[in-house]
Design a protein around this nucleic acid. Structure first.
Lengths: 217, 217
DNA sequence: ATCCGTTGTGACGATACATTCACATATTGG
DNA sequence: CCAATATGTGAATGTATCGTCACAACGGAT
């Protein structure tokens, strides 16, 4: 059809992204080499020029997810010095990521992807653990700087932080976009911040550009 | 094989439970009528004596999930008067439910189940919304009783409450049971409680049997 | 210009699965 | 006891999908 010849590196990226998009739109069951091929404008057998097979494609999807998750944290951290500000930015990005790719939680929760290739579960676990470790590191930094209450396990807070996004994602997905993720995230963040912010000490750094600063009813 | 003749009501229950268990163990892709049949000790075609087809089985699974979720809230609420105590109990039960049935979040997040039968998404949404409404009602009750801070949207808190469980479930699942869900839930609950508990007023009801009461490092 | 590796195509086989049907056997009511 | 119904079985059909293979066309290196 298109028969537009491209390098295998480009194709591999296209294929991985197409696969993640398909998982997001139709679920894991909608991920077939045929569907992936159609989405990239190829014929099914052409996929095997760039990947060993379906498993290889899935591996690439996992890699894609890892890259995007970690990029979020990295970029958010370079944008802000204050730990709380940094967390806030990670949160926003994370919500955006999940909104655009419901496939991410689906891959993480999946078992069929793990059953077909042992070891993959460990890889995904490492991805999530790495993400949590980064968040925990930000929190630790905040505690050292005095803007986050000490005496709270950074690991626990990191997991809770993750929990700020997940249910929103579910509701947004189930309600076909009706649920206002942005508004909920703002409110939930305020509550969470209230729980972890160091008391008394209105943190030394400037609070610019934060948006909703007041209480919300 | 077994050829043990049973009433269709019993079979329907057995089949629904087998299906949910299969989803929990092998993912949605592992849900085939053949697998379900094998697990109940039947031959594939026998399933059609009790259900219209695979879709019917999935419907029964959704019903099963709804029943179990709502039963949790109902039972927890009859066990405690204090709203916070009640929430605590719902949390514990919910964690237990997810631990025993990873299939629950998987069904909720799935899209393939929704694509195959339009309307199912709405049903699942209603289930989750109903669950959240129940939790929000408990929170509202707590606010009226003065043990939960007013000025916090009950709906927001209910969604956050759901977020206390979800990431734990993921980690527990990914780590093959290494992650200590119970411990994390306790700690997360303490943080959450600190965020929503009415200040100053050490709530009127007695705080018996609560476990870790003090700070945690 | 030509040769060879790379990328893409179409046909094909193998496997798994959902569903149907004809048949067998247990249970129950008359 | 007998018929009717409910439940279970095994074979068979149709479809979707993964993967392979032989062949074609494009592109760069010699």
């Amino acid at each position: 059809m298109g028969e537009e010849r491209l390098g295998t590196e480009v194709r591999r990226e296209q294929i991985a992204e197409a696969a993640l998009a398909l998982i997001s739109e139709r679920g894991l069951g909608g991920l077939s080499v045929a569907a992936v091929a159609r989405r990239v404008g190829l014929v099914p057998s052409a996929i095997y020029r760039h990947f060993e097979g379906k498993e290889g494609v899935v591996d690439a999807v996992v890699g894609l997810i890892r890259d995007r998750l970690l990029r979020n944290v990295r970029e958010a951290c370079t944008e802000a010095d204050d730990a709380l500000d940094c967390l806030r930015r990670i949160l926003t990005r994370h919500v955006q990521l999940i909104r655009n790719n419901v496939g991410v939680p689906r891959v993480v929760f999946s078992e069929e992807l793990y059953a077909s290739r042992p070891g993959r579960k460990g890889e995904v676990h490492a991805v999530v653990a790495g993400y949590l470790a980064s968040v925990a590191e930000v929190i630790r930094r905040g505690q050292a700087a005095g803007c986050i209450r000490p005496g709270l396990e950074p690991g626990t807070l990191a997991v809770m932080f993750l929990g700020l996004v997940q249910p929103s994602a579910i509701l947004w997905h189930l309600s076909d976009g009706q649920f206002d993720v942005t508004k909920h995230t703002q409110r939930a963040w305020e509550v969470f911040r209230g729980a972890i912010e160091a008391p008394g000490r209105p943190q030394p750094s400037q609070r610019r550009e934060s948006g909703s600063e007041g209480e919300m009813s």
